[in-house]
Measured scan of single mutants.
Amino acid sequence: KLLSSIEQACDICRLKKLKCSKEKPKCAKCLKNNWECRYSPKTKRSPLTRAHLTEVESRLERLE
């Protein structure tokens, strides 16, 4: 599967780190437990900047 097509777990399953069936409108866990089942939009991760990478590398060197 391509990364862009990976389905996201519902908010509660993601928060509780449960295996989500990803069914809509309610996944199996939410249906069974009568929880409100919501699927928040995916958040875009910002790409690493060179400055951040350099900072992490220098912190790693100090720890070694």
Rank of each mutant, 00 (worst) to 15 (best):
R14W: 07
S5G: 15
W35P: 10
L2C: 14
L48D: 06
E64Q: 09
E7D: 11
C20V: 01
C20H: 07
L15H: 14
L3Q: 15
S40R: 11
K26T: 15
N34Q: 09
T54N: 13
H52V: 04
K17M: 03
E23R: 04
R45V: 11
E57I: 00
K24T: 09
L63F: 03
L18S: 15
K24C: 13
K24N: 06
R45W: 00
L3H: 14
L60D: 02
H52D: 03
A28F: 14
A28D: 02
C13T: 09
L60G: 05
R14S: 01
S40D: 02
L2T: 11
K22L: 01
L63H: 06
Y39H: 02
K17S: 04
K16D: 08
T54Q: 12
P41N: 10
C13Q: 06
S40G: 05
T54M: 11
W35V: 10
R62I: 09
E61V: 08
Y39I: 03
K22E: 06
L2M: 13
T54S: 12
P25W: 02
R50C: 08
R38Y: 10
T43E: 10
T49E: 00
K22I: 00
D11K: 02
V56A: 12
E57Q: 08
I6M: 01
K29H: 10
A28K: 13
Y39R: 09
P47C: 01
C27A: 11
K17T: 03
A51I: 03
N34C: 00
I6L: 02
S58T: 15
K32T: 03
Q8M: 14
S46I: 00
C37H: 00
Q8H: 14
S5Q: 15
Y39C: 06
L15R: 15
S58W: 11
C10K: 00
L53F: 00
S46V: 08
Y39D: 03
R38V: 13
C37G: 11
Y39F: 12
R59Y: 07
N33R: 13
L53E: 05
C30Q: 07
R62A: 00
N34A: 10
E55F: 13
E57P: 00
K17W: 11
K22T: 03
S4F: 11
E57M: 05
T49F: 01
C37R: 03
C27T: 01
A28P: 00
R50Q: 12
C30I: 00
R14C: 08
C20T: 01
L53R: 02
T54R: 09
P47M: 05
L60W: 00
S46N: 10
P47Y: 06
Q8T: 14
S21W: 00
R14P: 04
E64A: 07
E61C: 11
K44P: 11
S46Y: 09
T54P: 12
K17L: 04
P47K: 03
K1C: 09
K22V: 03
T49M: 08
R50T: 03
R59C: 03
E7K: 15
S5R: 15
L18G: 00
H52F: 11
E55R: 11
L60E: 11
L31I: 12
T49R: 07
K1M: 11
H52A: 05
K16Y: 04
K24W: 11
E23L: 07
A9L: 10
E7I: 14
A51R: 13
Q8R: 15
I6K: 14
K17C: 09
R14V: 03
K32V: 05
H52T: 08
E64H: 10
L18N: 13
K16N: 03
T43A: 12
L31S: 12
N33Y: 07
A9I: 00
C13N: 00
E61Q: 14
A9N: 10
L60S: 10
K19I: 05
E36D: 13
K42C: 06
A9P: 04
I6T: 14
C13G: 15
L53T: 10
R14M: 05
P25V: 01
R62V: 06
K42R: 13
K1L: 11
H52G: 05
I12H: 10
S4R: 15
C27L: 02
A28T: 13
S5T: 14
I12A: 14
L31R: 08
K22M: 02
E7F: 14
K19M: 04
T54K: 11
Y39P: 06
C37T: 02
L3V: 14
K29Y: 02
K32C: 09
K26S: 13
E57Y: 02
P25Y: 07
N34L: 06
W35Q: 10
A28V: 11
S5C: 14
